[in-house]
């Protein structure tokens, strides 16, 4: 049996390697298509992603919300639920966290920072709990509800910052007052990388331990594989559906409040550049493994950061990073299937 395990691992590594190779080929094809020297541009991207300490820090800045949002998709997926609601949970997390900040700013004190973080977590949790309850009690498809709640969340934030929360000192710019320094997570190494990255990484590691070694994680495995058998063993699918959806929301909410407070400094529309959907795709690429989500998030974060720099120096549109991201997901999902097909053909 150990032999089976090893060959499976070797096979997975081979698949990953082939996928990466295929992606490099496709990416170079894309650069050639837009009239850039393929190899040099690729090399430049790698340099802009991890070439020096500044590039590296910018990649890590992007990694943080992506990893949080990936966790928000991974936790429901452990029960077999498909949540695409990280984007909305991120926005509501930012909204509720900012609300705590606005209430508490006159009092100040050391409680401010944990207060807004908890606010963000609670906001995200509420936005996950809602579709969780709808799924558990009324069998409403959670993918549809989370998708639609995303739009509501984005518009709620807009309503707040264009309306009652707009800081008049901004001269018409739709944004709240700035987060005071005492409310912002500490930055690390003198860069824009904030302690949120640490929280995300520690959360991912702890979740993986929970999934693997706790009664809770093992119960989720049973319920995901066969809810009927789960019931025979006394496990409650409905209860767990609510728990995983709300728990997932916690992390997307943290992504929202840390982006608003540490990166943008205030709540404004457009906190996220599609981090929710990116996180969802990272979750799939990582096979819903919280540990694997860490490197995959870093890879995608680097890709996005490098795309920004590429626009700055090489006059290549930053949206080409989005195109590359799409190509990466497409190859990563297609290559294993193609390998299987090829195997089946060969018998």
């Amino acid at each position: 049996m150990r032999v089976i395990g090893q060959s499976q691992q070797a096979e997975r590594a081979l698949t990953a390697l082939l996928s990466a190779f295929a992606f490099i080929l496709v990416a170079m094809g894309f650069f050639a298509f837009i009239g850039e020297p393929p190899f040099q541009t690729l090399l430049a991207m790698v340099t802009y992603a991890v070439g020096d300490s500044y590039s590296l820090s910018e990649s890590l800045v992007k990694t943080t919300p992506i990893l949080f949002c990936a966790l928000a998709a991974i936790i429901p997926a452990r029960l077999g639920l498909i949540s695409v609601g990280a984007e909305g949970q991120l926005y509501i997390g930012a909204l509720v966290g900012t609300f705590v900040m606005l209430l508490a700013v006159p009092y100040g004190g050391w409680l401010l920072m944990p207060g807004i973080l908890i606010g963000g977590a609670v906001g995200g949790a509420i936005w996950g709990w809602l579709p969780g309850v709808l799924r558990a009690r009324f069998q409403v498809n959670e993918t549809i509800t989370t998708l639609l709640l995303n739009y509501i969340a984005v518009l709620l934030v807009s309503a707040a910052v264009y309306g009652p929360w707009k800081d008049l000192a901004n001269l018409g710019w739709p944004a709240t007052i700035a987060f005071p320094d005492a409310s912002v997570l500490p930055f690390m190494f003198g860069t824009r990388v904030h302690a949120g990255l640490l929280i995300a990484v520690v959360a991912a590691l702890s979740l993986q331990v929970l999934f693997r070694y706790s009664r809770w994680g093992q119960g989720l495995d049973v319920l995901k594989g066969n809810a009927r058998v789960g019931r025979m063993m006394g496990l409650d699918f409905q209860r767990q559906a609510i728990i995983v959806m709300a728990f997932g929301g916690v992390f997307a909410g943290l992504a929202g409040i840390t982006e608003a407070s540490a990166i943008q400094g205030r709540l404004q529309p457009g906190i996220s550049v599609g981090y929710g959907l990116t996180g969802f795709l990272v979750a799939w690429l990582a096979g819903h493994n919280a540990l694997l989500a860490i490197p995959v998030s870093f890879l995608i974060g680097g890709l996005i950061a490098a795309g920004d720099t590429l626009q700055l120096f090489n006059k290549i549109p930053a949206s080409s990073a989005i195109v590359l991201q799409g190509l990466l997901f497409a190859t990563a999902l297609a290559v294993p299937g193609l390998i299987r097909l090829w195997r089946a053909r060969r018998g």
């Binding site: 495995d221 049973v222 058998v229 063993m233 496990l235």
Partner: peptide, 22 residues
């Protein structure tokens, strides 16, 4: 549960009697 191994399939009967960590 077809996706889980035999050990988990046999052990799941006592899953709620376990301590939280295993």
């Amino acid at each position: 549960v077809p996706d889980l191994d035999l050990s988990a399939n046999l052990g799941m009967r006592s899953i709620l009697q376990r301590r939280f960590w295993q």
